[in-house]
Nucleic acid binder design. Structure first.
Lengths: 202, 202
DNA sequence: AGCACTAGATAGAGCGTTCATTCTATTTTG
DNA sequence: CAAAATAGAATGAACGCTCTATCTAGTGCT
């Protein structure tokens, strides 16, 4: 396969890597980054352990790749929001933001997300990836607010993201929560956060 | 030591168990529930592996004990809030709540908290402990709001706890966040959550 | 008071398993 | 034919846990 017309070989390699990432993600979700083992991942993927190591040179690198992919997906999901125009944002801000949150409500993703947060506290490489993507996502969202003429966008973004981050954490602690009422109450809060009166910048 | 006047023996046992829990907590914080090993915990504690098993019959039980203790502490911390009188709560609600959050901002505790949330997703015993304590904490806080004559206390508590839960998650993703401005902005939001106009209960 | 007894405290070697990783060998394929 | 794809055994360390043996300190008897 020495000369598999370059790009075709590369494409196949990408596909295989993506399959491995899928299986790794499943295992990490079920057992955690440290509870899951390479051999289990290889087995689910239908390949040998040795072969897996041809694609990811260590378990740490595999973890980092899974984290990176998940954060990239989070970024893409928020990207939908950026295509809205200024008027839509100003008038429909709360329901639009609720829409985004609902898309985030895949419980599967939630599991992985907490695994990432826990790991970031002791694995500097994972922390670095997390911080990089958070910066990109934050800047992206800030730009939308600025486009809509909203003041102090950085601060408002920070507050809104804090509320977002709290939702899955809260759901984990209280799964029986009354969802519809909760979502209804969230609307005025989000409105207050995004278009409430400006703060005296001390 | 057959008859070490009962209570004295029990007290010593409690002390030793508490020491073991301290060391286990340290190790879990540093390496995660699954990354940390029994032998490492025993070593830090200065006891043998066999001896540790006389106090905690399995690693799972040790994890559960650490989780239980941490949640009990969280409950106690919120307990401070319950001693305030109705007038204080109504007039000073935002700064009082901020005070509580500040007490929660021990980064060490944050680490353990995310470990617990991640573990709760795959360990039903840990999930049960988490749900039980969340119920107790929630009821406790609701009672305070009711005492202050605040309407729809359950919904407001849910929303406030969501914001609380978001703070450490947000900090993990963006550690360089401007803290003082953030806290300042949180005040009107908390006020809105706790004493904003009532929702139309559909 | 002093001795023997006993049950809990404690240590640490050992068990079987699984871990991440490496190595060598074989098969596929351009 | 050569190089990449693939398999799977082998390695050494670490894992959770058990087992046995020793030590220690109260108790009851004299």
């Amino acid at each position: 396969m020495t000369v598999m017309t370059g790009s075709k070989a590369a494409a196949k390699r990408e596909t295989r890597m993506s399959e491995i990432l899928d299986c790794a993600e499943n295992n990490f979700v079920e057992k955690g980054f440290h509870g899951a083992g390479i051999s289990g991942i290889a087995k689910e993927c239908g390949i040998s352990v040795g072969h897996l190591y041809h694609y990811f040179a260590s378990k740490d690198l595999l973890i980092e790749a899974v984290v990176e992919r998940e954060l990239m997906r989070q970024k893409e999901r928020l990207g939908d929001f950026c295509n809205l125009n200024a008027a839509e944002i100003r008038d429909q801000i709360a329901p639009l933001v609720i829409d985004i949150i609902m898309k985030h409500q895949d419980p599967f993703r939630t599991v992985l997300n907490f695994e990432i947060l826990a790991e970031a506290q002791r694995n500097p490489s994972v922390a670095a990836i997390l911080h990089r993507y958070d910066g990109e996502i934050r800047d992206q969202f800030c730009a939308v607010l600025e486009k809509a003429g909203i003041t102090t966008p950085f601060l408002r973004t920070e507050m809104l993201f804090t509320l977002f981050a709290g939702i899955p954490a809260r759901t984990l602690r209280h799964p029986e929560q009354e969802r519809p009422q909760f979502i209804e109450m969230m609307k005025p809060i989000i409105t207050k956060i995004l278009v409430g009166e400006n703060l005296p910048v001390k």
